[in-house]
Design a protein around this nucleic acid. Structure first.
Length: 427
RNA sequence: GGAGACGUGGCUGAGUGGUCGAAAGCGCCUCACUGCUAACGAGGUAAGCCCUAACCGGCUUCAUGGGUUCGAAUCCCAUCGUCUCCGCCA
């Protein structure tokens, strides 16, 4: 959600934003609805003022006759008022609907483009492994090592179902423990949030009304969030935060549920695209300042890069193009890890900032130095998702004998250097 | 699942038809006091929208939406939310 005044003053920017983001939105329609809204508001307010004034006279009337006269006069005003208020209500409904569709303005540095194919590479790190043998994909390696069971996953869950088993589970726990320690050292407060959430939280964080079909829903009308960002953003909804407490830095960990409704037939093999997974997520609320939010945005993205670098997995970072940005996002970086068998990079992380787009919807405010209430700025980034990270991790570190050599930081948490072979814990 | 209570400003909390945007307290701000700080004292302090260069002014908001009324925080209905007790269950 944006400020209507800002929209009126910058309608060209909004139109350009919609165009850049490939979002269908007609600013003029909103402006004309707003013109109507203003006109009706002014006139109903005038009538109300009259009503209030007369009401006051009724209270202070000198005698019953005078009083009765005022009441009769008011009955007439009331009829007009009711008619106008009905009209105003209709206009307001249209107006609010349009307001929810206004795209946030992408940053100047966001590249033009239609799809993720147009994203701009901004960083490349690491050396892609060259194998002296024919590398296998993660499905084959993990299945052979008893780390995953897709067949029974489909039997139990259905399409995109999987079981992690044995060392697959131990490896996840090792990553989680390492991630918790790694990101905690960067001054985040860890949070285990509820992931079954009220609808309002999805509106607040910008996943609704547009993303309905990708969300699981309960019979009570609640939703399963696709990311811990949703409950964590809801955490401070309707609050006025003490300025001294900003920035708020949270590291969420939660299961994530995504229907992948628009992705039929896409990534049907393996752990790349699944309906439920686990994710550490960085969320920051900060003061309403562009430089500040950009600083944190670079930081959270860099945190994840550092984490990946510590594991030694080759990656690149892309600046997402306009067409690949969500309604509320100002700018987004994706980090993509090298997947040897596919011979391409696959997304592992997404870092975006929103200015006050989310906090306006969620009503998260703070008092600035002048004592004025302001909407906070929000930003978030994946810290690390499992099991998707396993795809690159395992494929990059596979050995000729079918075992997996773990990167150094994970050894401590996993308890051994290699998965598979003689010493394997897998049973 | 059954029964009940409740929803008021940044917070606590009073208010059962007009004098209520709302007592009181806390918090916060300013001033005074003090060697300094604290305490005490005096004053101030809701948000959003419209109008305005600004001041002034106007409107809305007591969970939300409807209704009754000339007039609603207050009465009625619905919805949402919170809490308590009983039952069931991890």
């Amino acid at each position: 959600m944006l400020d209507i005044k800002f929209i009126r003053d910058n309608k060209d920017l909004i139109a350009a934003a919609a165009k850049k983001k490939l979002i269908k939105f007609n600013v003029e329609e909103l402006i004309s609805a707003d013109d109507k809204r203003r006109l009706l508001m002014t006139s109903t307010e005038k009538r109300r003022a009259e009503q209030n004034a007369t009401s006051d006279k009724i209270t202070k009337a000198a005698n019953p006759e005078e009083r009765a006269g005022f009441i009769t006069a008011m009955k007439i005003v009331k009829a007009d008022l009711e008619k106008e208020e009905t009209e105003l209500k209709e206009v307001m409904t249209t107006w609010q609907n349009l307001m929810l569709q206004v795209p946030n303005i992408p940053d100047m540095s966001v590249p033009d483009g239609q799809t993720d194919a147009d994203n701009k590479e901004v960083k490349v790190w690491g050396e892609k492994p060259s194998f002296a043998f024919e590398p296998k994909d993660h499905v084959e390696i993990m299945t052979k090592l008893g780390m995953v069971d897709f067949e029974r996953g489909s039997k139990v869950h259905g399409f995109r179902g999987y079981f992690l088993t044995g060392d697959g589970v131990r490896l996840c726990f090792a990553i989680w423990n390492y991630a918790l320690e790694f990101f905690s050292a960067k001054n985040f407060t860890p949070v285990l949030p509820p992931i079954v959430v009220r609808k309002i939280n999805l509106f607040g964080s910008g996943y609704l009304p547009q993303g309905e079909e990708d969300l699981y829903k309960t019979q009570d009308g609640d939703y399963l969030a696709g990311t811990a960002e949703v409950p964590i953003m809801g955490f401070h909804a309707d609050e006025v935060l003490p300025t001294a407490e900003l920035p708020k830095r949270y590291l969420g960990f939660s299961p994530c549920y995504r229907r992948e409704a628009g992705a039929h037939g896409k990534d049907i093999r393996g752990l790349i695209r699944v309906n439920e997974f686990y994710k550490f997520e960085q969320v920051i609320l900060c003061e309403a300042n562009h430089e500040t939010t950009v600083k944190y945005h670079e930081e959270v993205n860099r945190n994840t890069e550092e984490f990946i670098e510590s594991l030694g997995i080759p990656y690149h970072t892309v600046a997402n193009c306009g067409g690949d940005l969500g309604l509320g996002q100002v700018k987004k970086y994706d980090i993509e890890l090298w997947v040897p068998k596919e011979g391409k990079y696959r997304e592992i992380s997404s870092a975006s900032y929103f200015h006050d787009f989310q906090c306006r919807r969620l009503n998260i405010r703070y008092k600035d130095a002048e004592g004025k209430l302001k909407y906070a700025y929000s930003l978030n980034s994946t810290a690390i998702p499992t099991p998707r990270i396993l795809v690159s991790l395992i494929e990059n570190f596979q050995q000729a004998d079918g075992t997996i050599k773990l990167p150094a930081p994970l050894v401590k948490y996993f308890g051994q250097e290699t998965i598979g072979g003689q010493s394997s814990l897998t049973k």
